[in-house]
């Protein structure tokens, strides 16, 4: 009965006949009713207008399918898949007479390795200050703390369930819902112009929680982040941790096991005093990066996968 009345009312308001007259008489009340509905919906369910009514995001999404300036695969493609990066289980197929291209993003990793010289310049800023504080003569007080910098990741870390980075970049409309709902507080909008506003992991304020029920996937309106209910969080590998010897405070002779202590999947082992990442177990949650005391850059950071690895558990 109520539903019928509601339909009738809406129908009456939308009916095309004499819309001019209705607009004249009903314009402001109509606007008021609409505003109230939008506000109530927003209070109840969040950005209903932006995600379910406003067509801009969907329109862009449709337009991007027929994009003029998008990359296209030409006829000379050898299907080597190097352009995809290391796509999980994808095999490299190198055509005859063509140069083999390394599958991983090792190029950019090498670049990062060379940035270690920067460490020489700023060496000891934080850690040596810390070492001095140890030789204390009085009690009380606090050592200064500073947020670490954002490491130059070879590849950004995407939220769990984003699966393929290329596809994710196309699907995501940068609505920010996942960022607002992130339980670990680690998603933040990207500042890279190629994916401006799209979510990526920033482990300075938090890390991806092992017990989280894919809150980001839950709220994603465009299915850019899939909600993977049947997979436990630790079965989705978003990336893996990379340790840099030059940045680590252990090379300064400081005892530290922070990354190993914090790892929720016990993927970091301290072997002969150095952290070793078990890349098979590492899920790229960023806990180690979050707690790494090295400044200004964390000595251990997560490199995102181009295609997230989904480890399907044995069926029960």
């Amino acid at each position: 009965m109520l539903i019928a009345t509601g339909f009738g009312a809406v129908g009456w308001f939308l009916t095309p006949y004499s819309i001019y007259g209705k607009t004249l008489t009903m314009f402001w009340p109509g606007v008021a009713v609409f505003a109230v509905v939008v506000v109530l919906a927003a209070v109840g369910k969040g950005r209903v207008w932006c995600n379910w009514v406003c067509p801009v995001g969907t329109l862009f999404n449709l337009l991007s399918k027929k994009s003029v300036c998008a990359h296209k695969i030409g006829p000379g493609c050898a299907n080597c898949r190097a352009c995809f990066g290391n796509g999980g289980k994808l095999e490299a197929k190198v055509g005859d007479g063509e140069k083999a291209i390394p599958l991983s993003n090792s190029n950019s990793e090498l670049q990062l390795g060379s940035s270690a010289t920067r460490r020489e310049a700023i060496k000891g800023v934080a850690v040596l200050a810390a070492a001095e504080a140890v030789e204390k003569t009085t009690d009380g007080g606090f050592a200064p703390v500073s947020l670490p910098g954002v490491p130059e990741r070879p590849a950004p870390v995407l939220p769990p369930g984003a699966v393929d980075r290329e596809k994710f970049n196309v699907k995501c409309v940068a609505c920010g819902l996942c960022i607002a709902n992130c339980r670990g507080g680690c998603l933040s909008p990207s500042t890279d112009l190629k994916r401006f506003g799209q979510p990526e992991m920033d482990f300075r304020r938090g890390y991806c929680l092992l017990g989280c029920n894919y809150a980001c996937g839950h709220v994603c309106p465009t299915m850019a982040i899939n909600w993977i209910p049947r997979l436990e969080r630790k079965n989705v590998h978003m990336g893996h941790a990379i340790w840099k010897k030059d940045l680590c405070i252990r090379t300064d002779g400081v005892e530290c096991t922070a990354c190993s202590r914090k790892c929720p999947v016990s993927a970091i082992h301290i072997v002969e005093g150095f952290p070793v990442v078990d890349k098979g177990a590492c899920i790229g949650c960023g806990a180690c990066e979050h707690v790494c005391p090295a400044r200004p850059m964390p000595a251990i950071f997560v490199k995102g996968f181009d295609r997230q690895r989904l480890v399907w558990p044995m069926s029960k």
Binding site: V134, C256, T257, A258, P293
Partner: peptide, 19 residues
């Protein structure tokens, strides 16, 4: 109040223990 002063940032160095 400051996140960086919370327990997860302990590195287990043990310098505090003898004090």
């Amino acid at each position: 109040p400051e996140e960086l002063r919370r327990a997860d940032h302990c590195t287990g160095c043990g310098l505090c223990r003898p004090h």
